[in-house]
Design a protein around this nucleic acid. Structure first.
Lengths: 190, 190
DNA sequence: AACAAATATTGACATTGTCAACATATTTTT
DNA sequence: AAAAATATGTTGACAATGTCAATATTTGTT
């Protein structure tokens, strides 16, 4: 993070990474614009050019983690050969990802501005990529397992809620019980 | 909140209430010891006699909400006549409670220091009262519905995770979809 | 080359958490 | 009841932080 020139070159992204580091090492309450700036070797007011205020900065960090999460899920989907196991693998991926970013868990899963809902037996389009991916992948699997069309949306939401709930419990336990829990996730899903 | 004498009389509790008000009206990030003190009509350093630091203060607010939540669940249990409907009613209570304290939701449900786990087909004793109550109530109901003993713990955890997950989605949606969701909760549980 | 835009710095200020020293009220001890 | 100890509240100070205005430097455009 050496300072070679007046202009940093990639400050915005490095501030986000610094912010994520602060959150994961010390908790969301200790996120600080000035410290993130210091970590990037720039002055305390430099972030102002990239983020209007601390709230927008925190939002940017959150969005970055969400994008990482989305990429991670996409990898799991791409690597998966056996569609029958996909839902289980996505559930596992959910937990595994937040093993690396435990502090970000509630940040990501409790965003007030994301939209997850259903009406008339149809899941409405969401602005939350991980959920969209889950819906897209889980739908065909459930259909092939005989779930009726008018119960499909509900079943998908059940699974999503359960995965979120289980992942939350995992995070709370510091991921100590992965073995047993994974067995449970499998039984729930199939 | 008038200041009648040098000593406030009930400062600790009123600080907690002020803190909760700040959290619910402006979000956890805007919790402030000094503002809570001002709301109680005392000087900025008065809270120091009741809370070591801001973290302990936030913890106290969180514990207060948890106790309110526990009392609310207990009321539901006490008022319930039909045991068959108890699990559904507790799920509903879960959501209803956080309708009043939406900002506190992730605070309460994502505490790192609470213990929820199982081993050898038994749920381990938890330090988290709401979960303990759920286990205690749900167990007999599931048994009476034919759930086998070696699947009981797992089924209880499934239900708990699902309720937490659904409640989280509710909170995100601003509780707009309660009708449909409640129908879903019922179908999941029975 | 000249100008405009983007990006970084410096200095200032208000807010906040925290601490130490002190003040006042309450409780306990004698 | 007086004195001492304890609990509770105040004031003033300081460092860390978010934010802003003014300024400086670099980069891109014309």
């Amino acid at each position: 993070m050496e300072k070679l020139s007046y202009h940093h070159g990639n400050l915005k992204q490095e501030l986000i990474l610094a912010g994520l580091k602060l959150i994961e090492e010390e908790g969301i309450s200790r996120l600080s614009l000035r410290r993130a700036a210091a970590m990037c070797g720039v002055s305390h007011a430099a972030p102002k050019n990239h983020f209007r205020d601390k709230e927008e900065f925190a939002e940017a960090v959150k969005n970055y983690v969400t994008e990482e999460f989305t990429r991670y899920l996409q990898e799991v989907i791409d690597q998966n050969r056996n569609k029958e196991e996909l839902i289980r693998d996505m559930g596992r991926a959910f937990v595994r990802f937040f093993k690396d970013y435990p502090q970000s868990f509630s940040l990501i899963t409790n965003q007030k501005n994301i939209c997850i809902s259903m009406s008339e037996h149809k899941i409405e389009k969401s602005n939350y990529a991980p959920f969209e991916m889950f819906v897209e992948q889980a739908g065909p699997v459930l259909r092939s397992r005989g779930v009726k069309e008018n119960e499909l949306a509900q079943k998908i939401l059940e699974l999503w809620a359960m995965v979120c709930g289980l992942a939350g419990i995992y995070v709370m336990q510091g991921f100590h019980y992965e073995g047993d829990w994974m067995e449970m996730v499998n039984k729930i899903i199939y």
